[in-house]
């Protein structure tokens, strides 16, 4: 940068007009992004909003609407007990996966970046724990469905080999069994990713702070609570909110695991599975209203992320 400025300075005015001439290329190079964004993101977003104000669904084989109904779809959406139940399902399964995820990730990140522990094979461990993140969620779910089925390998292991259970545990007939599996899969798929993000954050903390604390006789727990956690706060919030946005999108795992039913008794039906149901039954009014609500929730969460993580950088740029 400095070099560049030095070469600009002596050339003076002629240079500036040349720069302006080049700068139109900034717009030209942005054309693909902007064009694709407008067509494939913005227009669909606008028409999703538009749909949410129209009554438009199939009643058997008859098409009802589209008729403008104002906020009627929203009223219907929120007066139906389903939306609250499915929001609660989504929240419960997210929390069940996220709490162990953040605890384990903090612990591992702390260990990996602790120079005094000198852990051997940390590259191997990081490679292994990140791997599930790249696995196709639908295939992983089908695998879990097969392994945890009533007469599947896991029940065989628990009953006949390890003798922990007297009879097979019916995971997919039990509310907490199914929710537990969804949460466990989310945990497995995401704790490696979170560990690596938190580690990057911990590595960014000034080592001299730890050295000073050590001289003052702080224990490793005190160093973690008093130095690591407070300085890690922005990244922790980033991790929590991005994970929350990911949780709101929860779909593949419960969809495949329960074959789209959300069974037992709708206890694993998530918000996006609900959206999927409306889309399949071609109820565009309700899908629209639900999409718009989800857009606002994720949009607000995104703004929070933007404010903590990127605004400062942006000002510098």
């Amino acid at each position: 940068m400095a070099q560049n400025q030095a070469s600009v300075a002596p050339m003076g005015k002629g240079k500036r007009s040349k720069v302006v001439r080049y700068n139109k290329w900034g717009y030209i190079f942005l054309i693909p992004f902007v064009a694709v964004f407008l067509v494939f993101n913005l227009i669909p977003l606008i028409s999703t909003f538009y749909n949410s104000f129209y009554e438009n669904y199939m009643d058997g084989l008859t098409q009802i609407g589209p008729t403008f109904v104002g906020f009627e779809n929203y009223k219907q959406l929120f007066s139906d007990a389903n939306i609250w139940k499915f929001s609660a399902n989504t929240a419960i399964m997210w929390v069940m996966g996220f709490i162990p995820q953040i605890i384990v990730s903090l612990l591992l990140a702390q260990w990996f970046s602790d120079s005094r522990l000198r852990l051997k094979g940390s590259t191997f461990f990081k490679t292994v724990i990140y791997m599930p993140n790249l696995i196709m969620a639908s295939a992983f779910s089908l695998l879990f469905f097969a392994l945890f089925s009533d007469s599947g390998p896991i029940n065989d292991l628990l009953v006949n080999k390890l003798h922990i259970l007297d009879e097979p545990f019916k995971f997919f007939s039990s509310v907490w069994g199914t929710r537990g599996l969804v949460a466990a899969m989310n945990f497995l798929m995401w704790f490696g990713n979170t560990t690596i993000l938190l580690m990057a954050g911990i590595m960014g903390i000034d080592v001299s702070l730890y050295e000073a604390a050590e001289v003052d006789g702080a224990s490793s727990w005190q160093r973690f609570v008093r130095i690591t956690l407070p300085l890690l706060k922005p990244i922790l919030i980033y991790v929590i909110i991005t994970s929350l946005i990911g949780g709101i999108q929860m779909f593949d795992v419960p969809q495949i695991l329960t074959n789209g039913t959300g069974n037992p008794t709708n206890s694993t039906m998530t918000l996006i599975m609900y959206l999927n149901k409306h889309l399949y039954s071609k109820n565009y009014g309700m899908s629209g209203a639900l999409s718009v609500v989800l857009f606002f929730i994720t949009g607000i969460l995104s703004l929070v992320v933007y404010n903590i993580m990127y605004r400062k950088r942006d000002k510098e740029a």
């Binding site: 900034g26 977003l45 909110i241 991005t242 629209g288 999409s291 857009f295 994720t298 949009g299 969460l301």
Partner: peptide
């Protein structure tokens, strides 16, 4: 260029919004 900062900020702000919320309009289009 003039709109550089606006576009950069805009991209960062929409970075996290999931594609599922526009899927209805997307299918129709």
């Amino acid at each position: 260029f003039k709109l550089k900062k606006f576009i950069f900020t805009f991209i960062l702000m929409i970075m996290m919004v999931p594609t599922q919320v526009t899927v209805l309009g997307f299918i129709q289009l």
